[in-house]
Amino acid sequence: MTYRKAMKSCALALGTAVLATAAMAQDGPIKVGVILPMSGGGAYVGEGIYAGVDLAVKQVNEAGGVLGRPLQVLLRDEQLRPDVSTAAMRELITLEGVQHFIGPATSATSLANSQIAREEKVVNISPSAKTEALTAGDNLHDYIFQLAPTTDVDGVRTVEVLRGMGTESICFTGFDYAYTHDWFAAIRANMGDITEAGEFLVPMNATDFSATITQLLSSDCDTIVGTQYGGSFIAFVKQATPFGLFESKKVLWGSNTGDHAVAAALGAELPGGLWASAADVWYYEGEDSHAAYQQALAAHQGRKETDMWPITGYNAVKFLTAAIEAAGTTEPTAVAAALDGLTIQTPLGEITIDPETNRANSPEFYGRFEPQEGSDVARMTDLRLVR
């Protein structure tokens, strides 16, 4: 047992023995701060994650709550801005007494909020941020937990896909932020004899990609690897298609672009053959638990064709509630210690948080978008669930 793990075990024992009585004496709901992008270009991500949070909270409360207390979600809009997300977190801690947080959604805002979690000693579960920096080096602390596969893991998986695509030379493009830098670095570290022909980054939330498209078309690469997401990715596709970009280059996109919501938004405009990844796809048929989850989510959202983001919020709530139950208290130091090494059953099988890295071994889908007969919405084919 390492020193860090031993100290956390002591914290769990102390929290359970000393604080459980006080926790059981409390009444009223357990407040959970949820900080997500609910407006602007990232709104569809935030709305999706929140749908999963809402479903899980509904299930938990209908089953009697946690330690006999219901969960109460306090939702705040981060607007994809670190200053806004950190202000929201401080407000919830100071004015509402919140000790447990889910979110923010992106790498930049998650890095900022994690430091507040460290200072204030409150639990912070990141459902979707992928940057390795969130839980690496000096950024790793006892209160931050990362559920999404990190960029170093994605880098290895991505290069395997690129080799299968026959890639010889790459052009990189994407938002100029932590996830992009970390993922591209991980690809470079693993790509061997695949060469790089250029990198063309754009500011966060950019919507005009004319200059970038010109640079990509004139670059000597056979494959484009990109990270723009949400509305910005949709804008990129619509602007690039008339210039034949997707006919002249192979394309692999990160940022969970395999999400069905992206395919639905683009319809027939989504380029066939585009490779992507996703945390979840509604049409996966490999797990009974996934079918049950999708049935519940479809009923909750009122539509069969759900997107991928809800599963990230859903799993975050399940981890938090399991840790509170294991700790026997809502005291955040004890809950954080209980999260270390915790394994839960999810719609895609068991997931465990590594007690040394505070990272979960969440699986991810990879596939290639192709048109579907009788539908305007493409689906990922050659679907692989990678663990």
Rank of each mutant, 00 (worst) to 15 (best):
T180W: 05
D182N: 11
R188K: 15
R188S: 13
N190F: 04
G192M: 10
G192N: 15
T195F: 09
A197R: 02
G198I: 03
G198V: 06
G198L: 06
P203Y: 04
N205E: 15
T207Q: 15
F209G: 06
S210E: 10
T212Y: 10
T212W: 09
T214C: 00
Q215C: 01
Q215V: 00
L216T: 03
L217Y: 03
S218K: 10
S219I: 01
S219C: 09
D220N: 13
D220C: 01
C221R: 01
D222Y: 00
T227I: 03
Q228R: 09
Q228T: 14
G231E: 11
G231W: 01
G231D: 11
G231I: 00
I234G: 07
F236V: 01
F236T: 02
K238Y: 00
Q239C: 03
P242M: 04
F243H: 13
F243V: 03
S248L: 04
K249F: 05
K250Q: 14
S255N: 15
S255F: 06
T257G: 12
T257R: 11
A264F: 02
A265T: 10
A268Y: 05
L270S: 12
L270D: 09
L270G: 05
P271W: 09
G272P: 11
G273V: 06
A278Q: 08
A279E: 14
D280C: 04
Y283S: 04
Y284E: 10
E285D: 15
E285S: 14
H290I: 00
A292W: 00
Y293C: 02
Q295G: 01
A298Y: 02
A299N: 09
H300C: 00
H300F: 03
